[in-house]
Simulated assay, not measured.
Amino acid sequence: MKSKFLLCAIAASVMISCFNLSFTPSQANAATPEGLPKVTIVGMGGTITSTALGRELFQSYGTPKVSISDILARLQPEIAKVADVNVREVYNIGSAETTTANLYNLTLAIDEVLADPTVDAVVVNNGTNIMEELAYWTDLTVQSQKPVVFTGSMRQSNTFSFDGEANLFNAIRLAASRETTCYGTVLMMNDEFFAAREVTKTDALRLDTFDGGRYGALGTVDENRIRTVRAPARIMSCGTEAWKTPFNLKNVKAEDLAKVEIVYSYTEADGLPITALANAGVKGIVTAGHGAGGISTSQSQARKEAIEKGVVFVSATRAGSGAVYDTKAPGIIGGADLLPQKARILLQLGLTFSKDTEQIRGWFESIGLPEFNMSKH
Rank of each mutant, 00 (worst) to 15 (best):
A135K: 00
R155I: 10
N158P: 12
A115E: 12
L134V: 12
G152N: 06
S161W: 10
R178K: 14
E133D: 13
G152M: 07
L114N: 06
I172K: 02
D111E: 09
A135G: 08
E133A: 05
L168M: 09
L168N: 05
E165M: 09
A121V: 06
A171D: 06
V122S: 00
G127L: 04
E133P: 04
D139S: 11
D120P: 00
E132P: 01
Q143V: 07
A135Q: 04
R178G: 03
T141A: 03
L174P: 01
G127T: 08
M154F: 10
T138R: 00
P147W: 03
K146D: 03
A135T: 07
G152S: 06
S161C: 11
Q143D: 08
Y136R: 04
S153F: 07
F162P: 04
N125Q: 08
S153G: 13
E165F: 02
W137L: 09
N167L: 11
A175S: 08
A171Q: 05
F162G: 04
D111L: 04
A175N: 05
N125D: 15
E165I: 12
S157W: 07
G152Q: 07
V119I: 15
M131W: 05
R178Y: 07
T128W: 01
F150K: 00
V113M: 07
N167A: 11
A115F: 02
L168K: 04
R155Q: 12
T159Y: 10
V149F: 10
V119R: 00
D111N: 11
T151S: 11
V119P: 01
E179V: 12
F150M: 12
N167F: 11
A135V: 08
N167M: 13
I110T: 01
F160A: 11
R173M: 13
T159G: 09
F150D: 06
F169P: 02
E133R: 10
A115N: 15
S161G: 08
A166K: 13
A176W: 01
E133M: 11
F150Q: 04
L114C: 09
G127W: 00
F169Q: 08
W137Q: 02
A171V: 10
L140K: 01
T138C: 14
R178E: 14
T151M: 05
T141P: 02
M154D: 09
R173D: 09
I172T: 05
D111C: 06
D111R: 04
L134N: 14
G164E: 04
L140Q: 03
P117R: 10
W137E: 03
N167T: 13
S177A: 14
K146M: 10
V113G: 00
G152R: 01
T151N: 08
F160E: 14
A175C: 09
D139Y: 12
N125M: 02
G127N: 05
T151W: 02
N125E: 15
R173P: 06
N129T: 14
L134D: 12
A166T: 15
I172C: 02
I110D: 00
T128N: 10
T118N: 14
L134Y: 03
G164D: 02
G127D: 09
A175L: 08
V148T: 08
K146L: 10
D111Q: 07
E132A: 14
S161A: 15
